[in-house]
């Protein structure tokens, strides 16, 4: 799908660089894995294809020279979120194998909405950024871990600390929600 816009993308686009070719190829892998994730009828396979999609997105971050974001993506998404989802699937006794009712009845409406959104947004984005280039050369190094860390702890300390409190609150909330209560008591 990207290849289509590859040709439509622009006039000045004569010689694609290796970074762009790699980005398009990994992007196709990500899109394919995401499509299998939202369409497969085997629930556990959906979680495993999600690993492929999220890992491919980490590679895209590396290609966009955001190395710290890429490793955070691998650690948090591939490492913990997918494991949480697999645990959730197991604890709700998801059927192993095909489950015929994985999609609801309004999937055709959903397909229409998704296609309309994709068409509109691709049109807008392609029209708006037709002649915009970004500089991805690691020599500039603004995505390096040292730069990200120093800006994070120099300019963004207060949101960072607030976010840690939010994580703690979410953790306590999840424990309270999933704790099995004694039979005789409501609270």
């Amino acid at each position: 799908m990207n290849v289509v816009h590859h040709n439509a993308a622009g006039s000045g686009f004569l010689s694609p660089t290796g970074v762009e070719i790699t980005f398009v190829l990994v992007g196709l892998v990500v899109l394919g894995a995401a499509l299998v994730t939202v369409t497969t009828r085997q629930l556990v396979h959906a979680a495993l294809w999600l690993v492929v999609a999220l890992g491919g997105i980490a590679v895209e971050y590396l290609l966009l020279t955001a190395e710290f974001i890429a490793w955070v993506q691998v650690l948090i998404y591939v490492g913990s979120v997918v494991v949480l989802l697999l645990f959730g699937l197991m604890l709700t006794k998801a059927p192993i194998g095909r489950s015929p009712d994985a999609d609801s009845e309004n999937r055709w409406v959903a397909l229409g909405v998704a296609l309309a959104a994709a068409g509109t947004l691709v049109w807008v984005v392609a029209d708006a950024f037709r002649s915009t280039w970004i500089d991805v050369h690691p020599a500039n190094g603004p995505g390096a871990t040292a730069v990200t860390g120093s800006s994070l702890f120099r300019f963004w300390v207060l949101p960072f600390e607030a976010l840690s409190v939010l994580l703690l609150a979410a953790l306590v909330g999840a424990i309270v929600l999933s704790r099995r209560r004694p039979e005789g008591r409501d609270r």
Binding site: G27, A34, A118, L121, V122, V125, A126
Partner: peptide, 14 residues
């Protein structure tokens, strides 16, 4: 890199 690649990838993924 052309900005349209990550933008279109993000749109399709969304």
């Amino acid at each position: 890199m052309h900005l349209i690649y990550p933008a279109v990838l993000a749109v399709l993924l969304f």
